[in-house]
Design a binder for these strands. Structure first.
Lengths: 380, 380
DNA sequence: TTGAAAGCGCTAACAT
DNA sequence: ATGTTAGCGCTTTCAA
């Protein structure tokens, strides 16, 4: 690989002039500059990032701390990474993929101690996140995809759960549904402090209340089996629920099975929607599910951009970007069934009961009564 | 951040001694060494990777060239990345995620020109891969996840398609199936030179022939709609097919819909298996599909390890590792239906004909070979 | 407008 | 066994 010196010799100038010409650090005579650029091109010169970094204390490398793929990891998480890597690349940065092992903080201490990265991108941020605390304390620049309970001055990009919930509820209310159930993520150790689960829960409840439609959210199935069972219990306790939004892919699969088992059909007897799942996943179901697709790549891009901006200006005001999920209509949304169908009914190839467009909005419904307050209240 | 010099001062020795003591580059008196180590610990000394790299010409950074997420991209591809990053981390290396933009070769030229990485990990390798050609020509160390038609002296880790196909066919034959169909990936531009599609096709055909069972493979559905249609055409042309292996998730979804549409059930009327899809995806179907899960993380790990080994010894013989997919039995495998069921049949809640899980799976697949030990093959 | 020179933090050859 | 010294390729004063 040719170095600055090679270019300097070929262009018959000093290295410092080459550096200046190539970086625009100081004025260089047009003629000289041209000579230098030509020499550089001829030699296929590429600046050595290590040398540059050693000198300038800026490597233009960002670390993406990547959690160990737990169950439930999928496209979404991958797109954070690719989105971030793309945005970084466009801005002349590189992305180091740092898998978290047993001790994330230790990993962080390691990676930041090496002088290798300018900043860190955190994903899968918990409400109380030790990684964020460490980075703040260590004075390392970072940004978050997601956010802690109190982000303070840290830049973050997160899902706009309020707007997302509103979109979802509007979609369902617009179809005429008057009572909605929401299956959140399983309440296991992880989900307890998991922002999306908490915030989605809160916002769905709020949106349902605001829209004046019934709302049930005390189920949190984490698997297909759970989903099946939760659906049965749901229908037993709230037979008037006609629409269901589910956070977990697998739980949704269970619901579909349960629906089929009782001889119901989607969407005629139940409107089912996925929340925070990619359209690609939603397409794998039959019928294709309506989904609220998270803007994963976009969040990744934003996270990287914010971090890079921050590196350029340490004192800029913190940036907080909320991006709503996109509603991707599938074939699982329809007006509510008119009455609770007889249990165990089988409807062999029946004709359309109602044309989705003409079905009117029934006027009954308990206004907001079934709404159940979610435990954690957000104060932001 | 404290530097070598700080440690040297604190331990009252020369920097070179500190370097030697910490790296074991040359003998250092035990007492001195202890002093140095203590000083380093007290200062929380971390070697600066840039300085080290600048000097030693080895950065201990690997680049993973990550293709733009096309349709069909999923967990598998992500696991390559995380597996590679993990293995690299364990060996003291870091993984740079390099998204390919419009021109992969240009991206490669860029990344390798920077002096930032010691080697490159290629994934989604095509039979004729321009990136591999470039790297070979440029003399850059690299390894492949997948392989070109003629890997030459390049290290690679790939799926053992022969063993995988044999496992699949053994599974089906063990259940009693006598005629099998295989839906390969769509024959679009990409798939044409796509190793897995080509090799899986070849090996499934070979395995079926070797097992003496009927085989049909002239369908290549790329979407749910395609899958549905392909299945209809398949049954029209080959009504005696009782088992179907599908490469594409979405096509499988279509098949399931088509099966349901004709009043059939899985697995009673059709054994359906997914090929090269993660168990997580297979679980989202109803019934849970039997799948041949690719050893993605393992391949990523192997790729990284091989590359690192190669960096250590440039002249070691090329390594070629083939890892078979793992058969993950679902609820979609059963003995063949006894006769072509009457068209449009509906079977209301009949008793289990066979218990899907226990039928066949046991006695089918190659005994004891659940996760075949890595094979080394130098042919091709 | 350009050149010379001093490092950034480290490794490694050469002295002692 | 340890210290001295010379760079790795670059950026950045400071002079000219």
């Amino acid at each position: 690989m040719s170095s600055l010196r090679d270019v300097a010799e070929r262009a018959r100038v000093a290295v410092s002039t080459v550096s200046a010409a190539l970086n625009g650090t100081r004025p260089v005579a047009a003629a000289t500059k041209r000579r230098i650029e030509q020499a550089a091109a001829e030699l296929g010169y590429r600046p050595n990032l290590l040398a540059r970094g050693l000198q300038s204390k800026r490597t233009r490398i960002l670390a993406l701390l990547f959690p160990a793929p737990r169950a439930g990891f999928g496209l979404t998480e991958m797109r954070f990474a690719t989105g971030a890597a793309e945005a970084a690349g466009e801005l002349g940065y590189h992305l180091l993929l740092s898998p978290e092992r047993d001790d994330p903080v230790e990993e962080l201490r390691h990676i930041t101690g090496l002088g290798l990265v300018d900043g860190v991108l955190l994903m899968e941020v918990g409400l109380d996140d030790e990684r964020a605390e460490f980075l703040s304390a260590a004075g390392v620049a970072y940004s978050m995809i997601g956010r802690t309970r109190e982000p303070g001055p840290i830049d973050y990009a997160d899902i706009d759960f309020a707007a997302t919930a509103e979109t979802a509820v509007a979609h369902l209310a617009g179809l005429g549904h008057r009572k909605l159930a929401f299956f959140n993520h399983a309440a296991d150790a992880h989900a307890a402090g998991y922002g999306p689960a908490v915030r989605a829960g809160v916002e769905f409840a709020g949106a349902a209340r605001a829209a004046g439609i019934g709302y049930v959210d005390d189920f949190r199935p984490g698997s297909a089996e759970d989903g099946r069972e939760a659906f049965e219990r749901l229908m037993a306790a709230h037979p008037d629920v006609t629409a269901l939004a589910v956070m977990d892919d697998h739980a949704a699969a269970g619901v579909i099975a349960a629906v089929a088992a009782r001889g119901w059909r989607i969407p005629e007897d139940l409107t089912l929607m996925l929340v925070l799942s990619s359209a690609r996943v939603a397409e794998m179901f039959h019928p294709r599910l309506t989904t609220l697709e998270p803007p994963s790549a976009e969040l990744g891009r934003l996270g990287a951009r914010m971090l890079i901006d921050r590196l350029a200006d340490h004192d800029a005001p913190p940036r907080r970007r909320l991006v709503p999920c996109r509603l991707v209509p599938g074939d699982s949304s329809a007006p509510p069934r008119e009455e609770p169908p007889p249990d165990g009914r089988r409807t062999p190839a029946r004709a359309e009961r109602t044309s989705p467009r003409t079905a009117g909005v029934r006027g009954s419904a308990t206004p907001g009564i079934d709404h159940i307050e979610t435990t954690i209240s957000s104060k932001e």
